[in-house]
Every structure is written in structure tokens, then in C-alpha cells.
């Protein structure tokens, strides 16, 4: 469980992206999705994921809802709001320009 520092800053982006592709996921599923879609490279830690979810909910990017699971347990699922979509757009383009810039630096160094 190596800590991946570069993940911390972009956790919001990852969560937003996952939710935009597959709406109505609960926390565990989000974590699992991050791991599986990244081919097990990226691991979101619970200690960061849940605070991030609560923060984005406060910011109005995502909204949460309780649903009844088949097991009889309640699960809290999240989906993107309109503001969240917009935020995803800005975050994505910022990420891309940053990674582009870093790539350029790496190439020329």
C-alpha cells in the first residue's frame, strides 16, 4: 500500500471522473473503480476518500443519497451535479495542461 503522493491532489478529479462515467456509486465502489480502471496503480485511501467526498458534497459538486441494498443494509451513493460536471471540465483541462507541461519538461531535460 505505497502512498502515491501525486494522487492526493488529484483525488477530487479522479472521483469526479469515475462518477461521470458511472453514476450512483457508493464509497467502496468508487475506491474499487479507481483501483481497477488504473490497473491497480492508483489506490485511494479511505482516510482521504471519505473526507474528499464530504468536501465535494459541501461544495455542491456531488450529491449523496441513501439506497436500500439487497442485503438489507443501507448504502450511501453519490452522483455528479451540474456544478460537478463543470468542475470536472475545469479540473480535467487543468490536469491536462499540467501533465502536458510536465511531459515537455521531462522530454527536454
Amino acid at each position: 500500500m505505497a502512498k502515491n503522493d501525486s494522487l492526493q491532489g488529484s483525488l477530487d478529479l479522479l472521483v469526479l471522473k469515475i462518477l461521470s462515467r458511472r453514476p450512483r456509486l457508493h464509497g467502496y465502489a468508487i475506491m474499487a473503480a479507481i483501483a481497477s480502471t488504473s490497473g491497480d496503480v492508483l489506490h485511494a485511501e479511505e482516510g482521504s476518500l471519505y473526507p474528499a467526498l464530504y468536501r465535494m458534497e459541501e461544495a455542491g459538486w456531488i450529491r449523496a443519497e441513501w439506497i436500500k441494498k439487497d442485503s438489507g443494509r443501507r448504502a450511501r451513493i453519490y452522483e455528479l451535479t451540474a456544478a460537478g460536471k463543470k468542475q470536472l471540465g475545469t479540473a480535467e483541462s487543468r490536469w491536462q495542461s499540467v501533465s502536458l507541461a510536465i511531459n515537455r519538461v521531462l522530454r527536454e531535460a
Binding site: H26, Y28, R76
Partner: peptide, 10 residues
Amino acid sequence: EEIAFHLERA
């Protein structure tokens, strides 16, 4: 409850 659910799933 949410954390408990998470752990259950894990």
C-alpha cells in the same frame, strides 16, 4: 453507517 458499509464490502 457509511464507514460500516464500506468495511462490510471490503
